[in-house]
Design a protein around this nucleic acid. Structure first.
Length: 877
DNA sequence: CCAGGCACGTA
DNA sequence: CGTACGTGCCTGGT
């Protein structure tokens, strides 16, 4: 307990505690937009703030090591020699942490050749002498020796930095069985592996305590070492010098010459603005109020970020809102709230003025001129709002910014940002939200125009942060794509319930039959869909060998079952696989069927911020994973039909777009020639790799190089390739060697591309879309290698996504500007499905071919395959 | 009622 | 020990 009459001096080992925080906190949550890692800084400061709040020190200092070199390494060069170098991404955080401490007016103490713990020891000893209650905070066990009636040690428990255990003389005695000042004797006998200080073999804490209790002191023990019997006695006598050395090295210095003493360390007022500045740079949001609270400063009120004056919304009629908006010079932010896809209220804002109106019957006409004008409009998550307007017959133009898209482009690993999230991150403010747990909420949510106002300010903040190339991607690609997707989603695609339900019925019958047959083979009934019950049957009832382990048991996936069938053929396995296939198809059909609307069409939602690479994703339902591989599964595609009033479906897909991008980016002459030769790609590559004539490339050779080529794009290893092709690893390795011997520039490009990403911390597509990769610098090998493969793939997959988006929006715009009724319905990454109106086939095909072909200027041509049919399956041929 | 794990569909 | 996604079922927790 601290005596309130006495001042409290708290001295902290900054290095060891920040290092623990560094490993305790996941780096992905603590990385700024310019890829500065902050987990060590955040964890340390968070702990410090809690400590200050709990202990209320009157005097405070943080000590740091200067380098590995110290008087101890002079004495014994092996000291700490086995300790691995601390990672660069930790070291880089120390200066920033010290900047934070400086802003908080907390003295940072270092001394060349002296370790942080010696500084703590010196200050603790001076403090105790001068009448302070001393708190030592350190992660090094040697500091236990400092504990006495005036000095308490706070030591991180195994749980981590958030929990500190308090050691006074009594707790030390309870825990270690000796008095604090004897602890170094124990440590000297036992040794310290982490410091590379070997002790007496076979002697652990228990023996050491026993000896010390028996002999009273280490000197006495050594003097009478002869009295100890057995192997340990011999060990002791053989290692007396080690023990003496250990004891010498683990004694902390209490007489280090320091420029300051305890009295100079009085807690001083913090520099609030400096703290705000550096925390802003490190993107700490929640820590700021905690710091201010802990130091008891009434500073929070001064924080401009927390005193936000919301302009009051002015309620007007839609026509007045439109007139007001049209009269503004710059950006006007817009927010349309909807219910069931129908507008209910509309708000608009500039930085100073807010207007809002209920959506009335005449609203559409009153707003048309402004909404459809080029006047710049800023929205957050515009697509649902644009769709609601489309259904009212209004086509929004002049979309100048979407904060949801911009936030995603800046940090694609944090998708799906709500406006509230962005307001907190980029403005450091809180978006007023109605408490959803209450029927009549006590707190009012933001009104539409207030949300628009926040979005406008977020947009301004994002514009500051976004690199130029990423801003170009937003304006030239993403915003026009958003408007295109809105049209596609509203259009939907016609799906035949009849085709689906016939197929579903067949599958249900088949699945039931397969299940019954499977049960009779096994001898009992069970749930085929339960992995748990399935494992019982496979590995217990049927006594099949255990397969690949998973977190919860053993895998039963298709690849594993196929292997099993080969090694231990059993009729059940084939029945199970067929049953899986039938039920899977049925599930897909059912979910598709329930998604068919009153208009007999299915309206998916494209999530524009749904991937980290720039691809779209599709949900409710996902129309980007409709089966295609087997003949039977393609029956589902035949349910996607041309809609009433239209003539045909047109499908258009890029062939081998990723390999073409690879050829372009790598400049590999062989690969470029492959694409310019007109020869089948895999045949051409196979001929080169196997040194035969293209006409002599066998199907097996073609399969191998095809897998290799595609694998390249994903960062495939020889191991992975051998597994996929079911060949020996040595053969896979040889295949890779031959491949790279012919297409060396590809390997050079991939290597250089990952290297560059490591250097700058992000990858970039041909069009400037970026994806940050903090894990490329991770000390964790698994994380790092995963990041390397993703970084290898990102520019390729991302550039393909960019190209398709550009083609898509050009096609969309051309169809409209040529006043055609044909319309794009679906995008499946490298394929488009277009619904063609009567008489428009030729024009539509011309536009699609031209726009897909010229979406990017690469060193190889972009090849486009077009098909026509009454349904999707037919059109694919 | 929800989250995590598994399996599996697509590019 | 190959990238990027979404969905449905089962399970074991709330």
């Amino acid at each position: 307990m601290t005596d309130s009459a006495k001042p409290t001096l708290m001295v902290v080992d900054g290095h060891s505690l920040a290092y623990r925080a560094f490993f305790a906190l996941p780096v992905e949550n603590f990385t700024t937009k310019d890829n500065q890692h902050t987990n060590g800084i955040y964890g340390f400061l968070s702990m410090l703030v809690n400590l200050i709040k709990a202990e209320q020190p009157t005097h405070l200092a943080i000590a740091f090591d200067t380098s590995r070199h110290s008087f101890r390494t002079d004495e014994y060069p092996e000291y700490k020699a086995t300790r691995s170098e601390s990672p660069q991404e930790f070291k880089g955080q120390i200066p920033l942490l010290q900047d934070c401490l400086a802003a908080m007016s907390i003295p940072v103490l270092t001394k060349e050749g002296i370790e942080a713990d010696d500084i703590l020891a010196t200050l603790a000893s001076q403090g105790a002498e001068q009448g302070y209650d001393v708190l030592v905070v350190s992660g090094d066990r040697d500091t236990i020796q400092l504990v006495n009636d005036d000095v308490t040690l706070l030591y991180p428990s195994v749980q981590g930095v958030s929990q500190l255990k308090r050691y006074d003389p009594t707790t030390v005695q309870e825990r270690y069985g000796v008095r604090p000042e004897q602890y170094p004797d124990i440590a000297a006998l036992v040794g310290e592996t982490s410091d590379n200080l070997p002790g007496v073999p076979k002697v652990g804490e228990k023996t050491a305590v026993k000896w010390l209790t028996q002999f009273g002191s280490l000197d006495e023990l050594i003097a009478r070492a002869d009295e100890i019997k057995g192997v340990v006695g011999g060990n002791l006598r053989d290692h007396v010098e080690d023990v003496r050395r250990n004891r010498k090295l683990n004694r902390l210095l209490t007489d280090v010459e320091l420029p300051v003493g305890p009295a100079d360390l009085e807690v001083a007022p913090i520099d609030a603005q400096a703290v705000r500045d550096i925390f802003a740079r490190l993107e700490f949001r929640t820590l700021l109020p905690r710091v201010f609270e802990a130091v008891g400063a009434g500073e929070v009120a001064d924080d401009p970020a927390s005193v936000v004056v919301l302009p009051a919304p002015v309620d007007v009629a839609p026509a007045d809102l439109a007139a007001w908006a049209a009269a503004q010079d710059g950006d006007v932010s817009l927010r349309v709230t909807t219910q069931g896809g129908v507008p209910v209220r509309i708000g608009a804002a500039t930085l100073t003025d807010l207007r809002e109106a209920d959506w009335t019957d005449t609203a559409a006409e009153a707003l048309r001129e402004w909404i459809e004008s080029d006047a710049p409009k800023v929205l957050h998550d515009a697509k649902p709002q644009v769709k609601a307007l489309i259904r009212q017959g209004l086509r929004l133009r002049g979309l100048s910014y979407d904060t949801s898209l911009a936030g995603w482009l800046l940090r694609p690993s944090f998708p799906d940002k709500t406006l509230a999230d962005l307001v907190e991150r980029y403005l450091g403010e809180k978006l007023p939200e109605a408490d959803p747990s209450q029927l009549v909420p006590e707190t009012e949510g933001a009104t539409p125009s207030q949300e628009a106002w926040f979005a406008l300010r977020v947009a301004d903040a994002l514009r500051e942060d976004i690199p130029e190339s990423v801003g170009t991607v937003l304006v030239d690609i993403e915003l026009p794509t958003l408007l295109t997707l809105a049209d596609m989603e509203v259009a939907g695609v016609a799906v035949s319930h009849e085709v689906l339900s016939t197929f579903s019925g067949e599958l249900a019958t088949r699945a039931e039959g397969l299940a019954q047959e499977a049960f009779s083979v096994v001898g009992r009934e069970f749930n085929l869909g339960s992995p748990k019950q399935l494992q019982e049957v496979l590995f217990e009832d049927l006594q099949l060998p255990k397969t690949r382990k998973t977190k919860t048991g053993y895998s039963t996936d298709a690849a594993v079952l196929a292997d099993l069938q080969e090694s231990h053929p059993h009729p059940f396995l084939s029945l199970l696989l067929q049953h899986r296939e039938a039920t899977k198809l049925r599930q897909i059909i059912e979910s598709l069927d329930t998604a068919i609307g009153d208009d007999h069409r299915v309206h998916t939602t494209y999530v524009q911020t749904g991937s980290q690479t720039g691809r779209l994703s599709s949900t409710d339902p996902n129309l980007q994973n409709i089966p295609v591989r087997t003949e039977e599964s393609r029956r589902i595609r035949s349910a996607f039909e041309v809609g009433e009033g239209y003539e045909a479906l047109l499908t258009a897909d890029y062939s081998q777009i990723e390999m073409r991008i690879m050829a372009h980016l790598s400049g590999d002459e062989g690969l470029i020639e492959a694409f310019n030769s007109g020869e089948d790609l895999h045949r051409f590559v196979g001929a080169r790799v196997f040194g035969v004539d293209p006409s002599d490339v066998t199907p097996a050779m073609r399969t191998k190089v095809k897998a290799m080529s595609y694998g390249l794009v994903y960062g495939l290893s020889a191991f992975g390739l051998s597994k996929q092709l079911r060949i020996e690893q040595s053969e896979a390795k040889q295949l890779m060697v031959e491949y790279f011997a012919r297409f060396g520039a590809v390997r050079d490009y991939l290597r250089a591309s990952v290297m560059k990403a490591k250097e700058v911390g992000y990858t970039e597509t041909i069009f400037g879309r970026r994806r940050p990769f903090p894990d490329l610098a991770s000390p964790n090998r698994v994380l790092r290698e995963n990041a390397e493969r993703a970084a290898l793939n990102a520019p390729i997959q991302g550039s393909a996504a960019d190209i398709m988006k550009i083609a898509l929006l050009h096609i969309h715009d051309d169809l409209r500007s040529e006043q055609l009724s044909s319309r794009v319905l679906l995008q499946i990454h490298d394929e488009l499905v277009v619904e063609v109106a009567p008489g428009e086939w030729d024009a539509t095909e011309r536009i699609v071919r031209a726009r897909m072909g010229d979406a990017a200027e690469l060193t190889v041509p972009l090849d486009v395959q077009v098909g026509r049919g009454r349904d999707w399956n037919e059109a694919a041929h």
